[in-house]
Design a binder for these strands. Structure first.
Length: 340
DNA sequence: GTTGGCCGCCCCTTTACCTCA
DNA sequence: TCTGAGGTAAAGGGGCGGCCA
């Protein structure tokens, strides 16, 4: 992910500004950093590619579904078209096609059940019974998660859903079903978040959920209660989870920003050190010149003057001035720059 | 107008866990 | 298979502002 540091105006990346107008950048740096992070177009492009790829995968999955179930689905599912999920009636009979609900390595996950991906069989059953063909993989996934929760909560105790395949994910009453994803199911938490044991389990958000949250984050970095609730509903998460995600996201942004700031300061420091070294050298040369020729105060053609625009000492001027004044200027400038 | 309690939110830090090399 | 580093969700604590009596 590329980051563009900006100072108040996200359209003005600081790094670029520094290279073009280092002094202005230094000025704008001011006393503190504006932590605005410009991630707009870059993220959007990346996100768009990701979504396109996701959609292609989805279409492929959809074809598989159609082949397996002879049902007609929306050929052009819209990603992120998340409506309020319908309440599924309970008890819900889990799909048992080949007994592979939890035994198939879904969606390319090679390490067991991946709740990030909805098994086609599950999609078929749920779409048939519950919803009007919203074939978005996100919705499918969310339904699947919900069903897993409901299934575990209301199902017969200790029922194992692990099949004969490579998965060893099991359901049991009040227990988590997926250690890797930590989409833990408990009586107190119907969103598969925190377990009811003493040890809390980590929820691993699905890619779709993360992507959707990222999209929301691009629109606004903070949430009002309404937005939080809406997001929680759409993603089938608890509002607290959405809130925490945004907090963590802001923290990550800030961390990145700090890294960028640090890098920028490092470059500033190097530049100033180099300039300071150069000016000191020039000063020594001028002093030596003054010592060797004390009665001739006329400076050679390559003397030092003050740049009127940036107040910097320039060496390519032909103006004449006293060495003493120039030296004072140099010292003053150096002090100013060092103080900055 | 001021004050104290309550509530909600945010930030920072820590903890626990997952993933990967 | 084990291990350590990095990433990250979640929780705890403190601060702050808004609201209300």
């Amino acid at each position: 992910m590329e980051l563009g540091l900006s100072l108040g105006d996200s359209s003005k990346p600081l790094i670029g500004l520094m290279e073009k107008h280092p002094h202005q950048a230094s000025k704008e740096l001011g006393l503190g950093f504006n932590t605005t992070l410009s991630i707009g177009p870059i993220i959007s492009t990346t996100q768009r590619d990701q979504l396109q790829q996701q959609q292609q995968e989805e279409e492929k999955t959809q074809r598989d579904i159609n082949n397996n179930s002879n049902r007609t689905e929306n050929p052009n599912p819209v990603l992120h078209q998340l409506d309020l999920l319908p309440q599924l009636s309970f008890p819900w009979n889990p799909p048992s096609q080949n007994g592979n609900l939890l035994s198939t390595e879904f969606g390319g996950s090679s390490r067991g059940l991946d709740v990030n991906v909805v098994p086609p069989a599950t999609v078929v059953v749920m779409a048939n019974d519950e919803m009007a063909l919203s074939s978005s993989r996100i919705v499918q996934h969310l339904l699947f998660r919900r069903d897993l929760c409901m299934y575990s909560r209301g199902g017969s105790g200790g029922r194992s859903l692990s099949g004969s395949g490579g998965n060893k994910r099991e359901f049991s009453d009040g227990e988590g079903y997926d250690q890797r994803n930590s989409s833990r199911v408990s009586d107190e938490d119907d969103n598969c978040g925190v377990g009811n044991g003493n040890t809390r389990k980590k929820l691993r958000l699905s890619k779709d959920q993360s992507a959707f949250l990222e999209e929301s984050f691009k629109e606004h970095h903070t949430l009002n209660p309404k937005q939080k609730l809406a997001l929680a509903k759409q993603l089938n998460l608890r509002p607290r989870q959405v809130e925490v995600w945004f907090q963590n996201r802001r923290a990550r942004t800030k961390l990145k920003q700090t890294e960028v700031d640090c890098e920028y300061l490092k470059r500033c420091c190097e530049t100033l050190t180099e300039e300071n070294r150069r000016l000191h050298k020039e000063l020594q040369e001028l002093r030596a010149l003054k010592t060797s020729n004390p009665f001739n105060m006329q400076l050679p053609a390559t003397t030092l003057t003050m740049c009127p625009s940036c107040e910097r000492v320039a060496t390519n001027s032909t103006a004449t001035s006293s060495v003493t004044n120039t030296s004072a200027t140099i010292n003053g400038n150096n002090n100013n720059k060092i103080n900055q």
